[in-house]
Amino acid sequence: MRNSHRTQNIAFFFLLLATLLIIIPVGLIVVVIIQKGLPAINWQFVSDIPRQGMRTGGIFPAIVGTFYLVSGAILFALPIGLLAAIYLSEYAKENLLTRIIKLAIVNLAGVPSVVYGLFGLALFVVFLKFGASILAGSLTLGIMILPVIITTSREALESVPQSFREVSLSLGASKWQTIRHIVLPNAIPGILTGTILGLGRAAGETAPILFTVAAFYLPRLPKSIFDQAMALPYHLYVISTQVPNVDEKIRYGTAFVLLTLVLFMNLVAIIIRTKFRKKKKW
């Protein structure tokens, strides 16, 4: 008996150790980037174009580029993803087709990000002749975040109680009216959470935009959706591996801005989710 308790103590110690092995580095990464990146941040850094081969100046075009890419991606992915989620939650029957759709979503989520880049290059840049452009990059990112949006929106729709649907139908509302007036309004917080998570994902990805949009060094703002653009994650990659002798402050500063952007979006998503859970009336 005593022996088995000693075994338990040892086992629990190792489990705790495993947990700390993950959590402590996460904390350290965030702390280091804040500590070394924050001093680099000033108005000039976020509002100026990069100068002298990106060794001084700011990162404004990269911020703008990321903003365009993320907006374009969500503009494409949200309507399709939301309708797909409605299909799965409200219309799909338990049959082979539904099973295949679900499998396709899982696979779409699992395709390596660099393969998305290849696909975007082949379809949008070369085949549809968009060239390396914001349009091609946005569409590629949009397809990539589709599974995130479908999965979270579907969960949100399915969490609306079935009884609400029955009440609405029993009052003579059609299926679409029921979805439009009852199901969707009550799923909005969940859909919003999914959308923001998708935004965060799109903002942080590099590989899909490598060959579809990203400009190595373009010290001006993009003029149209057929223009190339800089983007924060690619810019960080470039100044940390491709350009020698970049001041470490600029690297950390860029990492800080990117991380802050992504974590901020995740934080907003988490806040919406918790608020919604507390407020839930049923």
């Binding site: 609400f164 009440v167 029993s170 009052l171």
Partner: peptide, 15 residues
């Protein structure tokens, strides 16, 4: 369903 109304077991107001 408009001609045949229904009142459910639990009070189910819509939100």
């Amino acid at each position: 369903r408009r001609r045949i109304g229904m009142v459910f077991a639990l009070p189910l107001p819509l939100p």
